[in-house]
Structure formats: C-alpha cells, structure tokens
C-alpha cells in the first residue's frame, strides 16, 4: 500500500488514457454518471453514480456478429478501457456478472473480451448514501478485491494497492506510482449485524408460492427502470439490423419486468402477471443466482430504490421474503 496524491493519480490516468479509453464518474449537472472523460475532469469525490458502470463491460447494445455471404463474423473490436472510480458495490456486482457469464458449461466470449481489455480501478466509499445497504448484505463499503487497483480516499491523497498483475503493470507506467506494492493486501471486512439474504439451501419452490407476491409488488408500474440501472441485471435479447446490404446481430439489454420477455410465439407466457415477473426479479437476485454461483445478485447499491418512480423498495421485499423463509 502507498499514499499517492490525487494529482499524481490524474497524471497516471492521463498516461493510461494515451492508449486506453478512460471512463469515470462525471457530473452532468443533474447526476453523476459514468462516461468517457479525461484525466482532468474525472470526479474524485465520494458521490455514487446514478447508473453503475456496467455498460462498459456489458454494453446496452453490442454488435456480436456480421453475417457475410458464407460466414457469421464475430465482432472482436473491444476498446481497451480504464474504468476509474468503481465503488465496492459495483465491483461486487462485477464479480456476480463474471460468475454468470464466465462460469458454468459455457463462457461468454464477448464478456470475456471486455474483462481482459478493461483495467478496473475501484474507490472505497467514505460514507453510506441515502438508500445504500451494502453493509446489510454483508459487504464492505470501503473495499472489494474484484478489481485491478483499489483506492482509499484520504482527502488529498489515495491509499493505493494493486490486486492484479494488470494493476501492477498499470501503476508501473509512472515512476511515482511504480512503488506501490500489494504487500498489505486486505480482505473485505464483514460488517456486524444481521445480513439480508436467503440461504442457498432453500428450495426454489418454498418461496415461489408461499410469499404474497401480489401484495408486495402492488404498486410496481412495470417500467423496468430498476433492471436498467441495476449493476447485476444481465438479461438480454438479440436484435438483427440490416445495414448497407448486410445483417448485423446485436445483443441488447432486456428486462424480466417486461411482459414480452418470456412470451412464447404461441401466445403462452410462463410469467404472465406483473407479480410473476417481480417474483422472478427478487428470487433470481437473492436465491437462484446464489444457488448457481455462490453470490447473491444484489450488492445493496440502492440505485433501484432511489430511482423507482413509485418507491418500490427491494430491501423491504427481500426482508418480507426472509420472514417467510424462516
């Protein structure tokens, strides 16, 4: 670990930006958002972004293929990107996404390419923001090791540690940061108190019918906002686009909250009601993904409850589900 002045960090980012796209939190006058930026403008304060940086490793629309006469040519064009300032909740969400896309019978080559091309610099939070509940999920707001370099904000300086070879190499690009070691590599603190969560031992069927999903989600308008700004939501659809006489296939974000998401061509829909769909969202996050990957797919970033137009609070719902699970 070493102390590095924020000015020096900007110098390092400028150096990295010579060969990579720099993405970081920026203030657009209304909210903080992740976008392509430059080393002088990137925010270095404690605010949390409205959306997570997920679009920079799982783009909202991404070209997968171009159909030529004889071949479907895979798009391998992924720009090397530095993602600066990811919060521990977003890093833990990336851990979940990585498990979903890279583990199991199939690895996703497109996600893999983003992961290998991205350099991720995390920054610990100094305090909880309204709506945040990472601590209630057993996560450490100050630290996550699922990144290449982790920073701790101490005012004018960052405490810096690298957590991967990629991170070490990045720091070596500037003499002032080359001295950083990972000798004191930390692990995340486990917060005290009760943790919101379901045991992976619970049978899927136990919570499927015994929770009053209609009551819990009565106010949901089905807008799907929560799924777009969630750092772990990863559902998608393919869309073909004809362009200059050839067809390109894109992967686009989709949402389990939308009725057409699971609609069969026959007209049958396994998740026909809004309550069915909200149940999928909640049980997928807290139970199914946990069973399949070992991680719950909610990291308590609070974005969904901060932005829901009718105030649906997934934390309240999760707690109600836990009561039934007891």
């Amino acid at each position: 670990m070493a102390d590095i002045k924020k000015e020096t960090m900007r110098k390092l980012l400028a150096k990295l930006a010579e060969s990579m796209t720099l993405v970081g939190p920026s203030d657009n006058g209304k909210v903080v958002e992740y976008k392509k930026t430059d080393a002088d403008s990137v925010l270095m304060d404690d605010r949390i972004s409205y959306k997570s940086p997920k679009e920079f490793y799982f783009p909202q629309t991404e070209k997968l293929l171009t159909f030529s006469r004889d071949e479907a040519v895979e798009n391998t064009d992924v720009p090397p990107t530095v993602i600066f300032g990811a919060k521990p909740c977003d890093l833990e969400a990336l851990r979940v996404m990585n498990a979903v896309f890279m583990e199991g019978r199939y690895a996703d080559p497109f996600f893999d390419r983003h992961m290998s091309q991205n350099l991720i610099i995390g920054v610990g939070c100094l305090k909880k923001k309204p709506g945040c509940f990472c601590d209630e999920l057993g996560l450490d707001m100050e630290f996550s090791d699922f990144c290449d370099i982790m920073l701790t904000d101490t005012g004018d300086t960052y405490k810096v540690e690298h957590l991967s070879e990629k991170g070490e190499k990045a720091l070596a690009q500037l003499p002032e940061t080359a001295k950083v070691t990972c000798a004191n590599k930390r692990t995340a603190k486990k917060p005290d108190g009760d943790v919101i969560g379901l045991s992976a031992d619970i049978e899927d069927i136990t919570l499927f019918d015994s929770v009053n999903w209609s009551d819990l989600t009565a106010t949901c308008q089905g807008c799907g906002m929560c799924t777009y700004i969630c750092p772990t939501c990863h559902c998608f659809e393919f869309k073909d686009v004809s362009k200059d006489g050839c067809v390109e296939r894109y992967r686009c974000w989709d949402s389990c909250i939308y009725p057409k998401f699971t609609l069969h061509a026959s007209g049958h829909n396994p998740r026909a009601s809004r309550a069915d769909r909200y149940r999928q969202r909640v049980l997928h996050k807290y139970l199914y993904v946990k069973k399949n990957t070992g991680h719950a797919a909610c990291t308590g970033c609070g974005r969904c409850l901060r932005s829901c137009p009718v105030g649906v609070n997934i934390k309240t719902v999760a707690k109600a589900v836990m009561e039934v699970a007891k």
Binding site: R105, Y106, F208, F236, E237, D254, F261, L283, Y288
Partner: peptide
C-alpha cells in the same frame, strides 16, 4: 423462449 441457449440471457429459467 431461449435467446442465448447457453444459460446467460435469463429468459428460460424455472427457479434456478
């Protein structure tokens, strides 16, 4: 409905 066929897109799950 199965978009991806490889367990990623999130459409075809029944429980886990």
């Amino acid at each position: 409905r199965m978009t991806c066929g490889v367990g990623k897109c999130g459409k075809c799950n029944i429980g886990r």
